[in-house]
Design a protein around this nucleic acid. Structure first.
Lengths: 138, 138
DNA sequence: CTAGTTGCAAAGAGTTTGCATGGCG
DNA sequence: CGCCATGCAAACTCTTTGCAACTAG
């Protein structure tokens, strides 16, 4: 059914080590290119890991690469994202309170939020302070 | 700064008429191809309309086309939007509880949400019921 | 041995860009 | 007339696929 290959071990190890950051397929392939892991393999294996719910795929913006993150299969590990419209910074928001939002919307508004697709856009604290910078995230 | 051209009038007219459905750049170009409107023009004009907040752009799934919808500019300022990933329906969510979300994130996470930019993606109640369709865990 | 796996290269899809032409004001 | 807009085709990016060689069990 499934073989245990050198490449797969390396990929899995890498995303586990970087479970706190967002990795693109490209960045993974890049990080492992010294180990002779092909990009195609990364894509294909990530797809499998997603199917097994060991990895979550995030689509944060169109046209750009998708992000992947090791989730260990634990369901309650989903979180929301905040994206600063000014500096482009992406904040991973793991917060109990936020789960209430999803629960509320589900209960009151009959809608199941997909946290892997949803991004809150706004202005981060740092940018709010220096509201004169000309940094435009285009 | 901006000219009033035949193509732009046609595009704007078309998306206004279809303000209740989700349109792809391609479908707009297709609908107007009899009127000699180029796809490039559609893309470029949609981008401008988004900048002016007359049109909203939605990313429903990666790799697939983005969707565009006429929003009329104002009205939608202090409430959130839910967009169904399955049927594409856009739900305007006016709810006091949701304002708490913004307040919470502002207070606890030092981030000011821009509700006019933020869209919650997920599955609406109707689509959730008819889960008879095949596996779509993509 | 044999089916799953790899990886190059090429195909694809959606979107953007270069550039010469066309048209608004 | 100046400048923005148009549109074709080519470029680009991210991802997927075809296919022959490879390898784990």
């Amino acid at each position: 059914m499934s073989y245990n290959t050198r490449q797969r071990e390396l990929i899995l190890e890498y995303i586990k080590e970087n479970a706190d950051s967002h990795l693109t397929a490209d960045s993974i392939a890049d990080a492992l290119k010294a180990e002779q892991v092909g990009k195609t393999t990364v894509y294909r294996y990530l797809e499998k890991l997603c199917e097994q719910h060991l990895v979550r795929k995030y689509i944060l913006s169109e046209g750009k690469s998708a992000c992947y993150q090791y989730s260990g299969g634990e369901e309650c590990h989903d979180h929301f994202h905040l994206k600063c419209l000014k500096c482009g910074k992406l904040i991973h928001l793991e917060c109990e309170h936020l789960k209430d939002i999803a629960a509320h919307i589900s209960a009151e508004h009959d809608f199941t939020i997909d946290s892997s697709r949803t991004v809150f856009y706004g202005i981060c604290g740092e940018c709010a302070k220096q509201h004169d910078t000309k940094n435009d995230t285009k």
